[in-house]
Design a protein around this nucleic acid. Structure first.
Lengths: 226, 226
DNA sequence: TTATTTTTGTGATAAACATCACGTTTTGTG
DNA sequence: CACAAAACGTGATGTTTATCACAAAAATAA
């Protein structure tokens, strides 16, 4: 458990930037930095939640065990907070967080986090803005999943990977076909079939987990037309 | 436009209860009370957002015009805030709000609302908790829609109406079949057929918009088994 | 009232996709 | 390396549900 000095941290969140020296000291004293390897669990569904987590680097998936199947709620890429709603909204985690690559995270004790919210309204304000944005995104993600059919949803995720997550036209899928299906909300078989089809039509090139976008325009058309 | 005195208001939200006299005065001076009839629009998608709205009484639906179809995001019943994420999370409304019965609402100017957030961390704190709870609910609503088939989703909404919205076993649907389909995320025809079937099986009794729950246990089984 | 529009119910048809089944490939391990 | 286990690809089949079509009922207007 590394001793932290949040004042010197160059990876501060928008919210943390509004903390003063004293507040940063409180944060430092109640915050630990932890490293995670791929597939390690940051927190687990149905367990008492006791920390707000700030991702310094890396990427995680948020998974929820639904009534009928597992589902990946979203992927989160550093820098960002995770587990805010599940920590502040209830005593128990409503979902799990699992690293999908090497990830470094700050675990902030929930009472400390709440204390900072009470101490510094600018800090609170930034958190509010972040929560609001996240809720809007969530609405759109939900509608995307509900109103489009599998091809459109798949294309949507492939584009999200290229443009938001990796910012590259070629990347390794961070998920296997089963998990990818949990994200797109379909079956493993459908994912397989559709990836093959996109490959055949030379819209993407696929080799195991390696994906290369060949025709982004076409892919966007597929995303937009359902 | 009625002159308000928020200090005397007996319908204060959890958050507003934490405001002091001075802050309540600021609120009073920048807040108007408006009455809406059924089907009147409180705010509209794609329009600049300029108010946070607190529902004193009544009920509204939040509607989003998706890429392929209209969808009802959720129903909100007073007392509650609406439009918080769409006002704080972006400059433009991402969805519309429409009254589904006579509704009275306070329109709070967004700059005033932001000022109160900065002035009073207890106020902010309550808003944060509300946002977090709402995001968790949203996750569950989304998963419910994605993982269950239409019968389960329909049953889920019928139970939600009885237990949460009306707290009665008999009520008038606040939506016509088309809108109900937009809420359940299916087609009007499927809604018709399934309501008829539930009626035939004597699980509900249905006469136009009037619904009576006859066998709640059975309905819950349908909800839970997909 | 009658006429007209909107809402609703219901059958027939078709499409999308899950599921099952099974073979192949890849990965991991002693 | 050899073997077992996990991940993956692909065909066949069946189910769910959207869509189309049209009639009946209800609401609204003239």
């Amino acid at each position: 458990m590394k001793k932290l000095n949040c004042s010197m941290c160059i990876l501060k969140s928008e919210a943390t930037k509004s903390l003063n020296t004293g507040e940063l000291k409180i944060l430092s004293q109640n915050c630990v930095e932890v490293d995670f390897k791929k597939d390690e669990v940051l927190f687990k569904q149905n367990v008492l939640s006791s920390n707000v987590i700030y991702l310094q680097s890396g990427m995680v998936k948020l998974i929820i065990e639904g009534p009928q199947r597992k589902q990946i709620l979203k992927l989160k890429k550093a820098p960002c907070y995770i587990g805010l709603p599940t920590t502040m909204g209830d005593k128990i985690n409503h979902y799990s967080a699992v690293a999908i690559q090497a990830t470094r995270a700050c675990f902030i004790d929930i009472t400390t986090f709440k204390k900072l919210l009470r101490l510094n309204p600018d800090f609170s304000y930034e958190i509010i803005v972040e929560l609001c944005k996240s809720e809007l995104e969530q609405f759109h993600r939900c509608i995307n999943l509900l109103q489009k059919q599998v091809f459109g949803r798949l294309a949507n995720n492939l584009i999200y990977f290229t443009e938001e997550l990796y910012e590259m036209d070629e990347y390794d899928l961070p998920l296997n076909r089963n998990e990818f299906a949990d994200l797109v909300c379909t079956s493993r078989e459908s994912i397989s079939r559709m990836l093959s089809e996109l490959d055949e039509e030379k819209i993407i090139k696929i080799e195991g987990k390696r994906i290369k976008i060949l025709n982004k325009e076409m892919l966007k058309k597929i995303r937009d037309n359902g």
